[in-house]
Design a binder for these strands. Structure first.
Lengths: 347, 347
DNA sequence: TTGTAGGCGTTATCAT
DNA sequence: ATGATAACGCCTACAA
């Protein structure tokens, strides 16, 4: 690999001259510049990014840390981050934070955070422990975290009001006449899920509907898990008349389980999701859900990061509201259904 | 930011001792090591990744360069790349290659490629010019490219047989009795699209079905474009009985257009997509499509990159086959339909 | 077992 | 306008 020195030698000029010429400094004469450029081309010279970063102490890159780069949920959020990052002339890289390697290596996300290989980070994954974030965040290395609650300098919290979202969704179900409502959710150690449950139970309580532990399920935030848990639920003796799924993906999985059992949604069972992913409106029946302002979340995370990077002060906590979107997967509860359900169980 | 020197000073040892201690070199005594670790913790020392990379001349990171990180199409491919990368103990970062910045800056992808900020790259975006790839690829910097055909050292081509895929899909449509088949595709300057058209026309020709330029449409590989082009197609006087969409997303967009016009798929119109994304089987009617082995593509790209990185020889070109998946969006052509269509046009 | 010192490839300061 | 040179922070012979 040719270095700047080689180019200098080849062009018969000093190293510094090459650096100036290649970086477009105006004090280099036209003749020298073209001589340098030619030599660089001839030697197939490419600047070494690390050396440059090391010297300059900044990269103009920010990292987006996800729990799994391949998830569909992030799609729209990434769009928001991407656009904003671009607007500000920064580069964006995404890395994941899962720990799957055999050698028990740290995840890429943690590595980037610890070694400060970027100018700042947006963390959307819960797989990064709070302490790592707290001691990575610095004056010149701000971090934006989604859906947490960390009180620390240079750490900016952006959250979605999952409690309110869970509350409204449940309230809607109750208003539709449902009193037997199951909650089929994601991992119990994630704040998102906890908050949605909190909202769920709050709504139940406020409307005098008893909470039934037998109808609370815990799994993963994906389709397969939604499918499996629904099958388990259906294997139980008595069924709810409505199900609140922890997210849309789980609801889609649930839908498949109902299809297989020939249970009609929403006539025999109302279901509601969470997130408002694209798929929710494309599937049939179109899914009633709680929309998170995903693009805005992404854009806001990036904006706040840049504000902080530029020394402007930013609110430590920002809470975004959700919106209930009523589609075709929910219906008002009509009493007769209860029987038909019991019937289909017994056969 | 504390450096290794500060830690050395604080711990009362030499710089090299700190380096050894922190990197787990066995020749450091236990006492010294813990002294060093404590000092590091106290000063909140973090190794500077760039300095380290600069010295070591390798990063154990590979870059995945996409045209747009937020696209749903890549989801499964990324999974494959991710798993394989992990298996090999490398880190993976994703960056995009679109040029949207105001200052006409190079895309992040190109920057990473040129400055070799990683140990190797997988390029899935057509926004990176061939020449950039050709002169970025080096002995110690292999590049795997998807769906191109570049003959150059250290450049590994992995392609999906889009011609065969397009051919089989079209053949199937013809076998179902269709003779009036439209092609609603993506950008005409992408190889994927060109190849699918080639396959399409080859099948037409081979079965003696005339090719109709009026039924060939060019747009973008996304839902909106599929929707719009379909509306345009429907605004034309005569309709085909089947449509071959350039990809599944476009077909989904088309489906919406049909729904709006109350045209029943597949009874009145057969449609077929390409790719085999998740959505294709979830939507109603479930989409007949040509499945690309997406996970395998991702995994293979990563594997080949590592082989090359480890000095093993790799085939310069690999061609992966597709598979036709017949679902509910296609039906055999029955003659009467032709009339009912003309009827619905006139009203 | 620990310390010294040179160098990775750039950039930026200061002379010339 | 150009050149010499000292950092940037880390790693690693080699010496002690």
């Amino acid at each position: 690999m040719a270095t700047i020195k080689d180019v200098a030698k080849h062009a018969g000029v000093a190293v510094s001259t090459v650096s100036y010429a290649l970086n477009g400094n105006s004090k280099i004469s036209k003749a020298t510049r073209s001589k340098v450029i030619e030599a660089a081309k001839y030697l197939n010279y490419k600047k070494n990014g690390f050396a440059s970063d090391l010297k300059k102490q900044s990269t103009y890159i920010i990292a987006l840390i996800l729990s799994d780069m391949s998830g569909p949920y992030y799609s729209e959020i990434i769009q928001g981050v991407q656009d904003t990052t671009n607007e500000h002339g920064y580069d964006l890289i995404a890395c994941n934070s899962f720990v799957g390697s055999p050698n028990n290596k740290e995840s890429t996300g943690i590595k980037f955070l610890k070694e400060q290989r970027v100018d700042g980070a947006i963390v959307m994954s819960h797989l990064i422990p709070d302490e790592v974030l707290i001691d990575a965040a610095q004056e010149n290395f701000p971090i934006v975290v989604l859906n947490r609650n960390i009180e620390s300098d240079h750490l900016i919290n952006i959250s979605v009001d999952n409690i309110q979202g869970g509350f409204n969704a449940t309230k809607y179900l109750i208003e539709q006449g449902h009193r037997d409502i199951a909650f089929v959710g994601g991992p119990s150690d994630t704040r998102d899920n906890q908050d949605r449950i909190t909202g769920f139970r709050k709504a139940l309580e406020m409307h005098g509907v008893p909470y039934q532990p037998k109808w609370q399920f815990t799994g993963q935030f994906n389709r397969t898990s939604g499918y499996r848990l629904t099958k388990i639920l259906l294997a139980q003796q008595d069924w709810p008349t409505a199900i609140f799924y922890g997210n849309d993906e789980m609801a889609v999985g649930g839908l498949k389980a109902f299809e297989e059992k020939n249970i009609r949604v929403p006539d025999e069972m109302s279901i509601i999701g969470f997130d408002g992913i694209d798929l929710a409106e494309l599937i049939r029946p179109a899914l009633t859900t709680t929309r998170q302002p995903k693009y805005e979340i992404g854009a806001l995370c990036a904006r706040f990061l840049f504000y902080s990077l530029h020394g402007e002060s930013v609110a430590q906590h920002t809470n975004l509201q959700t919106e209930l979107i009523i589609r075709q997967s929910t219906a008002t509860f009509k009493h007769e259904r209860s029987n038909s359900l019991t019937l289909s169980v017994s056969k």
